[in-house]
Design a protein around this nucleic acid. Structure first.
Lengths: 202, 202
DNA sequence: GGTGTATGGTCCGTTTCAGACCATCTGTTT
DNA sequence: AAACAGATGGTCTGAAACGGACCATACACC
């Protein structure tokens, strides 16, 4: 019957519909955009094709608006809830995946001008500071509301990761700044680790 | 001329060839598998098609072995080095991307049995501990060799991220373990944050 | 001579991706 | 009321990426 494989993205759709109630693809797009999209992103076009597919599988119900906009609103069915619960019930042995262009450039930096690294680090500091600001704003806005508090827990993980990255790039940038000779990698790695371990090392 | 777009994966190939010298696709596969693959993964089949493409663009040179195995060995050309250096010279404004199934399950946990979260957290603790062990082993093995020390710097970032994740999941699992009533999300979030902020909170 | 494992590589159907494109609706300005 | 901007709501498509099955050689060891 349902020998069909559901992707993680399918479960994001199911999960969002379970949490929010009936929604259009556009609603999902926005909701995901400032929540779960930060740790599972995909092109928005999929939010139009995927629910359609899930509806055909009986996991969602589709209702067409009669008047002008003819919106398509999706509602999770009992079967859909069941599939979602099943997925939630099995813990993952999957490790998170990171795709970090900056980390790559750092890794390969030997093959170019080592002077580039400082700029790279500074830009990353900026990126992570910005992201942290966004997360913290979200936390302030929703942290007190008990209905959404559970979701704030995963935001907390995001924050911790961001802060770890920020500490790293800050320490690296400081180290490169203060070092007259940035061409002594082994010792400079030690210094970097030292900076990271020092409390208030940022 | 080279109006062709190079993907990040292209630069991984270029970078690896620049650091290692002439290599076969298989060599690249192994080298990437325990280094840069941790923060930029892709199917190994691409390590057979991509270098071919880069060779056609003049960024690599291909030499065929005459005898038995007929290995294809790729060498980076001056043009290839140039492209790589250019890429390395521009800092990224890209933010890293995380894809974390566990974080998703945590986010949606309200929609299922909240009791699942403890198992989820425990499994993640295990995953991150394992990964940290791998990273630390690499660090011990190569940390002292000055030739590869620069590459150890990016490993350090990976380690910091892993440790942040481990702290989070450990704190969460401890919190759920000690809490008789895990259905008080707001207060329990506070407790979680408290645990994370406490030094030696793991 | 058989078996296992590392090496080295190819192929191909299915999903994802990125992003261009289109249409409608609502509020504001002029 | 016409014009416009910006949010809303959605479709389409070519190009990449994915993943995993599949194949073959080399070599070591029993």
């Amino acid at each position: 019957m349902s020998a069909v494989r559901l992707s993680t993205t399918s479960y994001v759709v199911l999960g969002m519909l379970a949490l929010r109630g009936p929604s259009t693809s556009y609603d999902l797009k926005r909701a995901i955009g400032h929540s779960v999209g930060y740790f599972w992103s995909f092109p928005h076009a999929q939010l139009y094709s995927e629910p359609q597919r899930l509806a055909e599988l009986g996991l969602l119900e589709l209702s067409l608006e009669e008047d002008g906009r003819r919106r398509k609103t999706f509602t999770i069915t009992e079967k859909g809830r069941h599939a979602l619960r099943q997925w939630l019930a099995e813990p993952t042995n999957e490790h998170f995946e990171i795709r970090d262009v900056a980390e790559l450039k750092l890794f390969f930096s030997e093959a170019g001008d080592p002077g580039n690294v400082l700029e790279l680090a500074r830009e990353q500091v900026k990126q992570h500071e910005e992201r942290i600001a966004v997360y913290e704003a979200t936390q302030r806005r929703f942290g007190q509301r008990p209905e959404v508090a559970p979701r704030m827990v995963s935001l907390q993980l995001g924050l911790e990761m961001e802060r770890a990255a920020l500490r790293f790039w800050t320490a690296l940038s400081d180290e490169l700044n203060s070092d007259a000779d940035p061409a002594l990698p082994a010792e400079y790695l030690q210094a970097l680790v030292g900076r990271l371990n020092r409390p208030n090392g940022g």
